[in-house]
Amino acid sequence: MNNKSGSPKRATSQDVAKLAGVSRSVVSAVLNGTPGIGVSEQTRENVLAAIRELDYHVDARARGMKTGRSMTLAAFGDTSHPLFMRLLEGMQRASGAEGYHLLLTSPGRGKAGEARAELLELYQQRRIDGIVTLDDTSYADEKWAQRVQANGVPYVSVEGYAEFAGVCSVHADYRKSIETALDYLWEKCSDKKFVPEYAEVFSLSHEGKVNWAEQQRRKGYEEWCREHKLEPKISRQLQQAGRVDWQDWCRQRAESKQDSPPVLLNWSSAAPDLYRSAYRFGLSIGTDLCIMAADNTIQGDLLSMPTLSCVEIPYAEMGEAAVRSVLLQIRGEAEKPSKLWLPAILKPGESA
């Protein structure tokens, strides 16, 4: 298809409609999922075939002027954090299926509050249609929530606002994840005389504070022990500069000459140091020490030998759920702010 100058002419929706034998409104319905216009599967296939044959591409600027949408979502989080990368994997999958693009934003070197304010400006400029943020599990900034609501921004927090009713959010079920891990440990590694030990790793960068997710994990452990009429056994391990010193912990188990109880770590990132210390004291992972992790932040199941048993927080699935939730808001189909709770994924390995 050429114009008078000899250069290729871009196909239009009218061209697609003519080739498919339908109206332009039907073409629009196929492309945008327009409510109220029923399209049969055969008609939809005819339109898609015409689009492919004509190599038709939607004029994003024209569509934006018509619909008021940019077909872009903002994904806000720390780009240096592996969990954000997993979240983006799911967000990209879900947004791509709906014809949306992602605009990647992060606090960078500036203040997080300033970066969030820029997101509101992008929304007001119609450069984005909605916002998804990956937050700390204890995050519940009421001022930010009020600004989002005042500007009418379709918004979902992943991990934040767990106990705040006025914000749409997506969460992992941390308490249930502990129950899943302990049930697995109890079945695989215990002769029912040992209480599984909960080794709670913490960092001074958090000033020793236990965030909401860790609180839920601890509660889950204590509840599980009560249900099994066992006395909880919790130890705390300090992580400094990304390392945990397990030397004394392993020495005690090596010198006791007795079987050790199964151990549940709250962070899989603490497992490599435990593996190294166990090796120094002649303890075999999976036999002398039965170990499991209550998350899989660094994909420890694949990087450890023997492979680490764990329950994985489903960040990719949480990203997909967040996109679906924000799109419901964009389309005006969300009745009220909702909370979505996703189960952790059990990944058996050789360490337990």
Rank of each mutant, 00 (worst) to 15 (best):
S169V: 08
V132M: 06
I178E: 03
G152N: 09
E142Y: 06
N151L: 04
K193G: 05
Q146P: 11
Y123C: 08
N151Q: 12
Q124P: 06
R147C: 07
T133N: 06
V170T: 07
S190L: 01
S169N: 11
Q146E: 13
L134C: 04
V148N: 03
A140Q: 09
K192P: 01
A162T: 14
T137R: 01
S177V: 09
T137D: 09
G130F: 02
S138L: 02
I178G: 01
W144E: 05
G166R: 15
D173N: 10
R147T: 08
L120Y: 11
Y174W: 13
K192H: 15
I128W: 11
R127V: 00
L134S: 08
L185V: 12
W144G: 01
V170R: 03
T137Q: 03
C168K: 03
Y174N: 13
V195F: 06
D141M: 06
R175C: 13
A162R: 15
I128N: 05
K143C: 06
I131H: 09
D183N: 15
A140P: 04
G152Q: 03
K176S: 13
C189D: 05
S190Q: 00
Q146L: 12
W186G: 11
V170Q: 09
E163C: 00
Q125G: 09
D191Q: 10
D136H: 14
I128A: 02
L120F: 11
F164D: 13
R175H: 13
A145E: 03
G166H: 13
E159L: 12
Q124E: 15
C168R: 02
A145G: 03
G166V: 04
Y123R: 02
E142C: 03
G166S: 14
G152T: 03
E121G: 11
A181M: 14
L134A: 12
E187G: 02
V158Q: 09
W186T: 11
V148K: 02
E179T: 15
A140R: 12
V167H: 10
Q149C: 05
E121Y: 12
L185A: 09
E179P: 05
G152K: 01
A140E: 12
S177Y: 00
I128H: 02
Q124F: 04
Q149I: 08
R127S: 08
S169F: 01
V170A: 01
F164Y: 15
Y139G: 01
T180K: 01
V170M: 10
Y184V: 00
V170N: 02
E187P: 00
E142H: 12
E121T: 14
R127H: 09
E163P: 00
Y123V: 10
A150T: 14
R147N: 12
I128P: 05
V153F: 06
Y184T: 03
T137N: 05
K193T: 11
C168W: 01
D183F: 11
F164N: 15
I178K: 01
V132D: 02
V132L: 04
V195T: 15
A165T: 13
Q125N: 13
S157D: 07
V148M: 10
V148I: 13
R175K: 15
V158H: 06
V170G: 09
